[in-house]
Design a protein around this nucleic acid. Structure first.
Lengths: 264, 264
DNA sequence: CCAGCTAGG
DNA sequence: CCCTAGCTG
């Protein structure tokens, strides 16, 4: 089972089962925006994230809004994971590979050339048995105002995912800050790429990956509670197909013990 | 000489000389946003526009923000022009051809599919002697908020301009509401297309086609006077090349007699 | 890190 | 039909 956290507020769980019977025949994936720019309870929130990761033991983790202190803390706290950071300053993405199951081959960082927010793509090449993976973790330009730049970044990211050799399974995921209207303007999801939330049945209960109804870390003055599907996970299958999406869900949707807040 | 008004505040004058010596060996083109949504002095402003058109007698005119009343008025006032409207309701583009020099062949209207403002492309096929023209008049999505939609419309427009058969000279112009940053995000001007303001020397004195420094029809409370190059004119040359850009300038930059306002 | 609106420069 | 900030559902 593969757990995908594509949310900074909560975690999306996605089960992918390999078609082959080679061990492990399933793997799990989580994407999670840690909200590392919000210092409130950051230590305790990060600790809670580690606890959830420890309990769920996902094979691959994509973090966004990691900061250097958080990176060091997580490296120390989760020795069973190899940790690859997208940068060393400010806030950045980091990808974690569970050492027992996922083998690191290489990684590279690709800048989003027009970003005003130092956003990039962190691509890790890895393998699970004979399954070859390209793991593309990104945090696209934030806020409505930067819609056009975000659309360009999304298109560039799709292009990169499409262009890997066909023997790779590509996971492109992270905090996309995406609105459906913007996906339309980008020309939609290109041929050969699937949205894993959709692949797993478009379940309403795990639609919103940024959700002020469920998560009260940020409060708005009025009573309006916005919710968006900002965090998304896409797969480009290998040829022949090696992976079958099995389950998509959320994690991190409970408050941290002894605090009034959520992990992110 | 070809006079191009690519401005609602003032007119850009562009001289294009044909390479051949067939008469007429020069033609002139104007693009002009009439600001027909602003009813203040609209009759008098429209009359002033007609006077300038009458004096300059451009061969091809692209109007934007025409309204039905203005269209009827201009048709009556400028009988030497054939008038083709992009719509009959609300506000719209209209293209005028000087009957003595430019011969109408056909026209078509192409919607900008994602527009929330009923924006389209009005394409008139015409000829001047043996020179075959596709005259593409448009008013792209307005305001900063609609940047992403505008970028898509621009790319679609460039694509259409590029795809005409090579024996046509294509003029793509109008009120693009374009910021340079957006042109970058669109991937820049595609191969084979030229910006006529640049072709004619990027002269600073005719850079701003929407200019609150020169034009006081709209007043802002503060002392900040924005200016932008919203209105632009692009050419895709025929093969072999038939037209040489000769001059780009502004018209309509003087106040209307007996009013405190500019024509648009 | 919502969308839509308004005010002030 | 500028830009930014601030308000409010």
């Amino acid at each position: 089972e593969l757990v995908v956290n594509v949310n900074k507020d909560m975690v999306n769980a996605l089960g992918l089962g390999q078609v082959t019977s080679e061990p492990p025949s399933k793997f799990s994936f989580v994407s999670w925006n840690l909200d590392g720019l919000d210092e409130r309870n950051l230590k305790r929130r990060t600790k809670a994230v580690c606890k959830i990761i420890y309990m769920e033991h996902p094979d691959v983790i994509f973090f966004q809004e990691m900061i250097p202190e958080t990176f060091s803390y997580i490296e120390g706290k989760l020795p069973e994971y190899m940790c690859i950071a997208g940068s060393t300053e400010g806030y950045f993405t980091a990808t974690l590979l569970r050492r027992f199951t996922v083998y690191y081959d290489s990684h590279r960082i690709t800048e989003h050339s027009g970003s005003l927010m130092m956003r990039n793509l962190l691509t890790v090449e890895a393998h699970i048995g004979s399954l070859k993976l390209q793991l593309v973790n990104t945090h696209l330009e934030s806020t409505r105002d930067h819609s056009a730049e975000r659309i360009k970044q999304l298109k560039d990211s799709f292009k990169i995912a499409q262009d890997f050799p066909e023997d790779y399974t590509v996971l492109l995921a992270g905090d996309m800050n995406l609105r459906d209207k913007e996906l339309e303007l980008a020309g939609g999801i290109p041929p050969g790429i699937e949205d894993l939330w959709i692949s797993c049945g478009s379940r309403k209960e795990c639609q919103y990956t940024w959700d002020m109804v469920r998560n009260c870390n940020k409060e708005l003055p009025g009573k309006f509670k916005p919710r968006c599907r900002f965090d998304r996970a896409y797969i480009r299958h290998s040829h022949p197909k090696r992976v079958v999406p099995a389950h998509f869900g959320l994690v991190g949707i409970e408050k941290v013990t002894s605090t009034q807040c959520f992990p992110s």
